[in-house]
Simulated scan of single mutants.
Amino acid sequence: MKKLVFSLLIFGLLFNCKNAQESNGKLNIVTTTTMITDLVSNVGGDKINIQGLMGSGVDPHLYKASEGDVSKLANADIIFYGGLHLEGKLVEVFEKMGHQNIKTIAVSDALDESTLISSESFAGNYDPHIWFNIDYWIQITEYVARNLSKENPENKSFFQANSKTYIEKLQVLKEKLRATIETLPQDKRILVTAHDAFNYFGIAFDFEVVGLQGLSTATEAGVQDVQKLAAFIIDKQVKAIFVESSVPKRTIEALQAAVISKKHDVAIGGTLYSDALGNAGTLEGTYIGMFEYNVKTIVNALK
């Protein structure tokens, strides 16, 4: 019954939707995660109106659209979302928007699927945490600029210039992070977190990455998962494990307790930003600032 009511609400809002593009001529853009909002803002600048659905600390795997969200989506010219089932509970909403000729763009479509990490649990699915590969984020920046230019050709040169500037910053970021990580011995590059959000990071920067939960936080970790990972931490003499800002810390605290009960000391090395950026207006509230913070936190805790 709730599903029927929600579907009727969506169609009602779409039916009543007037001209989505405001009289100022700017594109109305709606984005899902904070990472995508930050990227599109960097490319679109003051030539777009942008609204992000999710804020700091919000888990996109579990996010459900509110009535206000549906209204925002229904009035958009373009919706940018992650794809690869990242926003699993919004798929039905996006499909309905597409049927009403509202352009919905999965930023993951910019990438070659053959280069993505396959899911061991779900055949044909891929790890959606693509923002932790900076090279992917560069490709996605170019993809966003192309799509904004297609919808708003009079500002094409503006979008392309912003894209170029942002990509240069991302390239600098990559080298800066690599230099920081080089200060950490190879045998200490083991990253244990709440869920499998950092596998692309691990490949890019040569870390062994282990998540207590799977790719989606919708999958709960069981007692056997905790005990198995505790044994791994002791065997590898891992010094610190990490909480994630968008995942309840109780899972990592349970893991720490399991390790300590076996007479091995492991610290909680800090909180990492995984599925969402930090608070708006802070350095960690940007993609670049988030990545710098994460790497410093990881390296300092594992040294």
Rank of each mutant, 00 (worst) to 15 (best):
T251G: 07
I252P: 00
I252R: 02
E253T: 10
E253G: 01
A254Y: 00
A254H: 02
A254T: 07
L255M: 02
L255I: 04
L255N: 05
Q256D: 04
Q256F: 03
Q256T: 04
A257H: 06
A257Q: 12
A257I: 05
A257S: 13
A257C: 02
A257D: 12
A258I: 06
A258D: 04
V259D: 07
V259N: 12
I260R: 14
I260A: 08
S261H: 10
S261L: 04
K262M: 07
K262V: 01
K263M: 08
K263S: 09
K263Y: 08
K263L: 08
K263P: 00
K263H: 12
H264G: 02
H264A: 08
H264Y: 15
D265A: 11
D265W: 13
D265G: 01
V266H: 12
V266W: 12
A267G: 05
A267Y: 10
A267K: 15
A267H: 13
I268V: 11
G269P: 08
G269W: 07
G270E: 06
G270F: 13
T271M: 13
T271N: 02
T271P: 03
L272R: 15
L272V: 13
L272K: 14
Y273R: 03
Y273M: 06
Y273W: 09
S274W: 06
S274E: 03
S274H: 04
D275H: 00
D275E: 02
D275Q: 03
D275M: 02
A276E: 01
A276N: 01
L277E: 02
L277A: 02
G278Y: 11
G278F: 04
N279A: 08
N279T: 11
N279S: 06
N279V: 06
N279M: 01
A280F: 00
A280H: 00
G281C: 03
T282E: 11
T282S: 12
T282W: 09
T282A: 05
T282R: 03
T282I: 02
L283P: 02
L283S: 14
E284K: 14
E284A: 15
E284L: 01
G285M: 10
G285D: 03
G285N: 04
G285L: 03
T286W: 13
T286G: 11
T286S: 15
T286R: 12
T286I: 07
I288N: 00
G289M: 05
M290H: 05
M290V: 12
M290I: 06
F291K: 03
F291H: 09
F291L: 15
F291P: 02
E292D: 14
E292R: 01
E292Q: 14
E292M: 11
Y293W: 07
Y293L: 11
N294K: 10
N294L: 07
N294C: 08
N294P: 11
V295G: 13
V295A: 06
V295N: 08
V295Y: 14
T297V: 10
T297N: 15
I298R: 14
I298V: 15
I298N: 12
I298L: 12
V299Y: 09
V299H: 06
V299C: 07
V299E: 06
N300W: 05
N300H: 10
N300I: 06
A301E: 09
A301R: 09
L302V: 11
L302C: 11
L302P: 07
L302T: 05
